[in-house]
């Protein structure tokens, strides 16, 4: 169970743009690996080269001993894919989709019920895919990717365009995915998703990998200050400045915020003044790392 993926110096150019520009990384067997980046960063193209949909113009990909672009059935039987779009046969029910995909992989018919159970679609088994909600479609397409119990799974933005409830619901499905030692590679542009699901994350932009580490290490590496927010009117701005020492204080209508690298000192003083009601402390998240690396300006 599980496979090792090694990508080295991957390059893919479309016209003048280098969509992927020298990407190298390895994914260990059983690892949950995330490719993170803004739209157009080159995540999907990178994933397509790893899956074998595109042959790299330069560099190599190996999944165990296989070169995926050769599309060898022996590898494809061990590989599950969920593409960006919901790729289904028209006008078939959830059960029929699973049966059809199952038979492409030579899977016994009983697997369909197991998968419906696993992704919580038992009561939607006889509903046509056109009539499923966005979240149900994504769960079904993940079930289709897992129908043959693959050793490695590729997920391309599985939670794109889902509402927050549906996303969290889907995370529950995804989180258990590599419990059995399966290797999982996921692309996303949601930081929280990568933080919750991935063992390691590669942050990509403009076709290059900018950082690659565990989410926690990336956040620590940012060495970002902590934001301590107080409900308005708890203490005066003057008091806050006094407590903060030299650290910046921002007084807004909704909150009074102290940004500091010495949270324990600030919090102790606030506790001494009995000003902890309605207080919130926020450390850096992967989103901060991401914005730090890729810039904050809006890109259309």
């Amino acid at each position: 169970m599980g496979v090792e993926i090694r990508a080295e110096g991957l390059v893919m150019t479309y016209g003048d743009t280098r969509a992927v520009d020298g990407v190298s990384f390895t994914v260990a067997s059983g690892e949950f690996f995330g490719l993170l980046g803004p739209n157009g960063a080159g995540k999907t193209t990178t994933l397509e080269m790893i899956e074998g949909l595109r042959k790299p113009q330069a560099g190599t990909v190996r999944i165990d001993q296989y070169e995926p672009w050769k599309r060898e059935p022996a590898l494809q039987r061990r590989m599950g894919v969920q593409l960006q779009a919901s790729s289904f046969f028209e006008r078939l029910t959830a059960r029929e989709q699973l049966d059809t995909f199952g038979s492409l992989y030579g899977v016994a018919a009983g697997r369909t019920d197991e998968m419906l159970e696993e992704v919580g679609l038992v009561d939607k088994a006889d509903v046509r895919t056109e009539d499923l909600s966005g979240g149900q479609k994504q769960r079904l397409s993940i079930a289709c990717a897992l129908i043959h119990d693959p050793d490695v799974v590729f997920l391309d933005e599985p939670t794109a365009a889902l509402d927050p409830q549906a996303r969290r619901n889907l995370w529950d499905v995804l989180r258990t995915m590599n419990d059995s030692g399966r290797t999982v590679v996921l692309t996303t542009h949601y930081m929280d998703e990568a933080e919750v699901l991935c063992d390691r994350v590669a942050i990509m932009d403009a076709g290059k990998i900018l950082e690659l580490d565990t989410p926690a290490a990336l956040v620590r590496g940012l060495d970002a200050p902590v934001r301590i927010s107080l409900a308005p009117g708890t203490i005066t701005v003057e008091t806050a400045r006094e407590i903060a020492g030299g650290d910046p204080v921002v007084d807004e209508e909704s909150a009074l915020t102290i940004t500091t690298r010495e949270p324990s000192r600030v919090l102790t003083q606030l506790a001494n003044r009995d000003a902890l009601d309605g207080l919130s402390v926020k450390g850096a998240s992967l989103e901060d790392v991401f914005l730090e690396l890729t810039g904050r300006e809006y890109r259309a």
């Binding site: 899956e51 074998g52 949909l53 599309r71 059935p73 494809q76 039987r77 590989m79 894919v81 593409l83 960006q84 779009a85 919901s86 790729s87 289904f88 046969f89 028209e90 995909f101 492409l104 992989y105």
Partner: peptide
């Protein structure tokens, strides 16, 4: 056209078919 647009062609390319 439908299979190309909804990605099923790509999906089938990655299946042992």
């Amino acid at each position: 056209v439908v299979w190309r647009k909804n990605g099923l062609l790509r999906r089938l390319r990655l299946a042992p078919v």
